Measured scan of single mutants.
Amino acid sequence: TTYYDVLGVKPNATQEELKKAYRKLALKYHPDKNPNEGEKFKQISQAYEVLSDAKKRELYDKGGE
């Protein structure tokens, strides 16, 4: 599973699309609303952290993490 899959976006997604997808999923899986989905929330946050940063995203796209 790639970070793009976690957020449900395509690899060519814009920053705005990433932000929108992250917010939607973060609300859905937030531990306050969904106590059993803490791990999913962490995955979503990690994916967004990497993909929202241009340098980290470039490194990730080249095969790094």
Rank of each mutant, 00 (worst) to 15 (best):
D53I: 05
D5W: 06
A47T: 01
Q46H: 12
A13H: 02
T14M: 03
L25D: 00
K56F: 07
E39S: 08
L51P: 00
R23L: 15
Y29M: 05
L25G: 02
T2E: 06
E37F: 15
A21Y: 02
L27W: 12
K28P: 02
N36Y: 11
L51H: 00
L25R: 03
R57E: 02
G63W: 15
E37V: 07
K20G: 07
A13S: 06
T1Q: 14
K42L: 11
R57Y: 03
N34D: 08
V9D: 00
K28L: 15
K62R: 12
I44S: 01
L18W: 01
A13E: 02
R23A: 15
K20N: 15
A26W: 15
N12P: 02
E37G: 13
K24G: 08
V9W: 00
I44P: 00
D5M: 08
F41C: 04
E58C: 10
A21W: 02
N12R: 05
Y4E: 01
K42V: 07
Y4T: 01
E58H: 08
T2K: 05
Y22I: 02
S52N: 06
N36C: 12
L18G: 00
L25E: 03
P31G: 09
N12F: 07
F41M: 06
A13F: 06
L25H: 03
K40Y: 11
R57G: 03
V50I: 12
R57L: 03
E49W: 12
N36E: 13
K19S: 14
L27S: 12
Q15H: 09
T2D: 10
E39A: 11
V50D: 03
K55N: 11
L59H: 07
E16T: 09
L27P: 03
K55Y: 13
N36P: 07
E58M: 08
Y4R: 01
K40E: 05
L51G: 00
E58K: 07
A54Y: 10
L59G: 06
E58W: 08
Y29E: 02
V6A: 06
K40T: 07
P31K: 06
A13R: 00
Y22G: 00
V50R: 03
Q43F: 08
K10Y: 08
E49Q: 09
K40V: 09
Y22C: 03
V50F: 09
G63R: 10
Y48N: 01
Y3C: 05
R57K: 06
I44W: 02
E37A: 12
A26N: 05
T14C: 04
A54V: 14
E58N: 07
Q43W: 10
T14A: 03
K20W: 12
K62T: 08
L59I: 12
E65W: 13
F41S: 02
E17W: 04
E65P: 12
P35G: 09
Q46M: 13
P11V: 10
K10Q: 11
L59M: 13
H30M: 07
Q46D: 12
D61M: 03
K40S: 06
V6Q: 05
P31N: 07
Y29Q: 02
D5C: 08
R57N: 03
E16K: 11
E65M: 15
K42I: 09
T1I: 14
A21P: 00
L27E: 15
Q15R: 08
E58D: 12
L27K: 11
K10M: 11
L59P: 03
Q43R: 09
F41K: 02
L7M: 05
S45C: 14
E17H: 04
L59T: 09
P35A: 10
H30W: 05
D53N: 08
K33Q: 12
V9L: 07
Q15T: 10
P35T: 08
G38N: 13
N34R: 07
P35E: 08
P31V: 06
N12M: 06
Y3P: 04
Y29R: 02
N12K: 05
I44R: 01
G64N: 14
Y4P: 00
T14E: 03
Y4F: 02
K62H: 11
N36G: 11
E49V: 06
F41L: 07
